[in-house]
Design a protein around this nucleic acid. Structure first.
Ligand code: FES
Ligand code: FES
Lengths: 132, 132
DNA sequence: TTATATACGATAATTATAGTCGTATTTATT
DNA sequence: AATAAATACGACTATAATTATCGTATATAA
């Protein structure tokens, strides 16, 4: 319960790897995967997703790769998580109002209260803070 | 990601159900399950777990059932979660140090920092506050 | 004695996550 | 122009975790 996914885990590892690189230098999916013992294909997908979301920059072709994006400093942990995994709710009903109950729901308010707190916490932490 | 389990969800529903009862009165697993459309057997197990953990009180035999325990006021949401689902870590390595990586781990510190924040947040919220 | 409730271990079903495969595209290098 | 090495993506499979059920034992009020 309340676990991160591997995708996010790998993303964090990759971010730290890129932050540790000399400024502007590229690194590849292969390089990160090998040096941390991660499944390359899965990591590659995660990197592609991060590139699409402008967390990192991608350069194609041989001698291409990825580097950390400059605006990654501003991104919150909440946004980081949501860009990778979609809306961040402890229960699905937080967003799509598909209540699991027949109609006698008595936890909508509690769930929202708890979830708001969690989202608020992750909004206040930046990716930079968390990974530095 | 970062979702509650059904077990916890059902537990929250049950707690609120019992809080709404007249003081001291008992309610049964069947009653709760029927009135909220939950699977009775699974809910029953969760109630048994809660009873074992002194979150609620159990009375056996016909006309038995459960009622909210008086010390449920003091319990934190973190303890509530952990009593039901075990240690609360966003990654397993937070506790058993079974690092997923081959040996080149670079996220131990970040993970601990993030997780400490989360645990701290749930430590500060009481079950009572959350469900009232 | 019966009926109804909790207690609990074992197992099955379902769902979500994790990982792989195949192929297309880009582009530096030769 | 050909090749090789990288990103880009969709479809698929495998694995793990969660969810739910089954069967049986025990307690106890009526
Ligand atoms: S269970 Fe979330 S709204 Fe009812
Ligand atoms: S992944 Fe958690 S300690 Fe390395």
């Amino acid at each position: 319960m309340l676990k991160l996914t591997r995708k996010v885990e790998y993303a964090l590892i990759a971010v730290r790897h890129m932050q540790a690189m000399e400024s502007g230098k590229l690194t590849s999916a292969k390089e990160i995967a090998l040096s941390h013992g991660l499944p390359q294909q899965l990591l590659a997908k995660t990197l592609q997703k991060m590139a699409k979301e402008n967390i990192i920059e991608a350069v194609q072709g041989p001698s291409g790769g990825y580097r950390i994006s400059s605006n990654s400093d501003k991104i919150s942990l909440k946004d980081f998580f949501e860009k990778l995994e979609g809306p961040l709710g402890m229960m699905d009903c937080y967003f799509d109002s598909e209540c699991i109950q027949l109609g006698a729901c008595n936890i909508r308010t509690p769930i929202q209260r708890i979830n708001d707190n969690m989202r608020n916490m992750f909004s206040k932490m930046t990716l930079r803070e968390a990974t530095q």
